[in-house]
């Protein structure tokens, strides 16, 4: 059986290895250059003694073209699902070869187990390799911008991409088995993968562990250690009313419209910008009326816990899809 799988997939294996090698070479070349750039920035700012304020806005590490490519790796699991997962059963059904495959001495279950096993293993390995390259490449950026926990960056690094690759491939296999035709299965896999990823990204991830809330003096900027993921910032009145998010201009994450009218006017001394003195005046005005500031966040120490939980969720969904696939295949006619 393993030999058959190799024969069926050797072409796509060769293409994948070639693409991975090209991508690896590109990341290695640009990553080394970026690391050298970062190193020289650190040397310069140490010499000048201003590393604490080394402006994140002023230094741009790497080139935008490579950055686009890095962001695009977010879609690679979907490609595994489309090109490896979907045809696994659907193509055999469409061409009728499953009638032959399912009437041999090798049982249907074993046939499916070997094919699915190798495909999932390959997808996980490729996803992991890609994520490892991206994680290494992003090292200087993570150190400079401290944003590895933010949505969009978190999804490209660590072990989560392995979970996505596993899930996308399993989803493709399942869709191909249930719909029996390649094209509708491609559509379902694409739609399903994007929908599940978006839902978990936007609504579920922030609740993996109870967020930490820090209370501080109102309107003060908060410097959390490391790449903390800030979920909300705002003010709490002495009656416990929360002012956060909302529309309109904001100061350090607090909407200006949430401030009492008497304090709002202190903020602006001219039309140009909010001055430091104005900010201080407004902050003490708000404080005297009993407001406290708060910041809700996930500390950076939870990064790997979150990676583990996210990977676990996607691996569990993949497992459920594979179990469903086995049930469908065992029940279906050849």
């Amino acid at each position: 059986m393993t030999w058959l799988v190799w024969r069926q997939y050797r072409m796509s294996a060769a293409v994948t290895v070639a693409l991975l090698a090209a991508f690896g070479a590109l990341l290695l070349a640009t990553g080394l250059r970026m690391a050298a750039q970062w190193h020289s920035v650190l040397l310069a700012c140490t010499a000048a003694g201003n590393c604490a304020t080394t402006a994140q806005q002023e230094i741009y590490l790497g080139s935008p073209a490579i950055q686009i490519l890095i962001v695009l790796t977010m879609a690679v699991p979907a490609v595994f699902g489309l090109l490896w997962g979907v045809p696994l059963v659907a193509h055999e059904t469409e061409t009728g070869t499953r009638i032959y495959a399912w009437t041999q001495t090798v049982t249907r279950r074993r046939w499916l187990a070997v094919k699915v096993g190798w495909t999932l293993l390959a997808a996980t390995a490729c996803g992991g390799l890609l994520a490892a390259l991206v994680t290494w490449w992003s090292g200087p950026k993570n150190a400079l911008y401290q944003n590895a926990f933010d949505p969009g960056i978190f999804d490209l690094q660590g072990i989560a991409p392995m979970g996505y690759a596993l899930f996308a491939t399993a989803l493709g296999i399942f869709a191909g088995t249930v719909l029996r035709r390649t094209l509708p299965a491609l559509g379902l896999t694409l739609g399903g993968f994007v929908a599940v990823r978006l839902l978990i990204n936007v609504f579920v991830r922030q609740h993996y562990m109870a967020a930490v809330t820090l209370y501080h003096s109102p309107l003060a900027p908060v410097n959390l250690p490391g790449s903390a993921w800030i979920l909300a910032r705002g003010l709490i009145s002495k009656y416990g009313q929360v002012f956060s998010g909302g529309s309109g201009p904001s100061v350090n994450g607090v909407p200006v419209s949430a401030l009492p009218a008497s304090c709002q006017s202190l903020l602006y001394h001219g039309p140009q910008s909010i001055s430091r003195a104005g900010l201080r005046a407004a902050a003490s005005c708000v404080q005297s009326q009993g407001f406290r500031g708060f910041t809700t966040y996930q500390p950076s120490s939870r990064f790997w816990a979150f990676q583990g939980i996210e990977t676990g969720i996607f691996a569990a969904m993949a497992l459920a899809l594979i179990v469903a696939t086995f049930v469908v295949v065992r029940r279906g006619d050849a």
Partner: peptide, 13 residues
């Protein structure tokens, strides 16, 4: 009203 429209792009999401 506050005559602060110049810095809107950095403070408003």
């Amino acid at each position: 009203a506050l005559r602060s429209c110049d810095n809107l792009s950095s403070t408003l999401f």
